[in-house]
């Protein structure tokens, strides 16, 4: 297992700020309340998404670091042209869960992550049996119960792979 920073959580939010998929990685995945806690963190980042995305001078989909939560966790964001948001929470302590002497994370380090996530998302959208309209808050209300989250096994597995293998400086997944 590699030392140094790793990904703690990957979150996908739709145009209506609805959660599409949340993946949590080691060592946090072992914590029972992790899903709730990371949902809060992702939720808290949505305002910053909106703020950054409304910047007229913005040319890139990459929104950079959204917030540093504490000395350990920080949230990074990416918003596509259709308003789909990718949020990545980086854990400076890494998979070991201990402070390490890794250098600071740069935006460049996370670009491949977002690119890979976007590719996975595009592939998901190209699946004819995936209907984006079924994954909005309105549809979730109609269907009662299912929250409109992504269920595709391929997509979930790919997100998990991205979160598991990423280390700073990794160019290709």
């Amino acid at each position: 297992m590699s030392l140094g920073p790793s990904l703690a959580c990957i979150g996908l939010m739709g145009k209506y700020d609805n959660p599409l998929h949340i993946a949590i990685f080691e060592p946090h995945s072992a914590v029972e309340s992790a899903h709730l806690e990371f949902s809060f963190l992702l939720n808290a980042s949505l305002d910053i998404f909106e703020l950054r995305a409304s910047d007229r001078n913005r040319v890139d989909q990459d929104l950079g670091m959204l917030q540093a939560i504490d000395e350990r966790l920080s949230t990074w964001g990416w918003q596509t042209g259709t308003g789909t948001k990718f949020a990545v929470i980086v854990d400076m302590w890494g998979k070991q869960g201990r402070p390490s002497t890794g250098s600071a994370i740069k935006g460049e380090d996370l670009k491949p992550v977002f690119k890979a996530l976007q590719t996975a998302y595009i592939r998901l959208l190209q699946n004819p049996f995936y209907t984006p309209d079924d994954h909005t808050p309105m549809a979730a209300v109609r269907s009662r119960g299912s929250a409109g989250e992504i269920k595709s096994k391929k997509f979930i597995a790919e997100v998990k792979r991205i979160g598991d293998v990423w280390t700073p400086g990794l160019e290709k997944f």
Partner: peptide, 8 residues
């Protein structure tokens, strides 16, 4: 069948 995932 590129990118296709059958309904579950």
């Amino acid at each position: 069948a590129d990118c296709v995932e059958l309904p579950n």
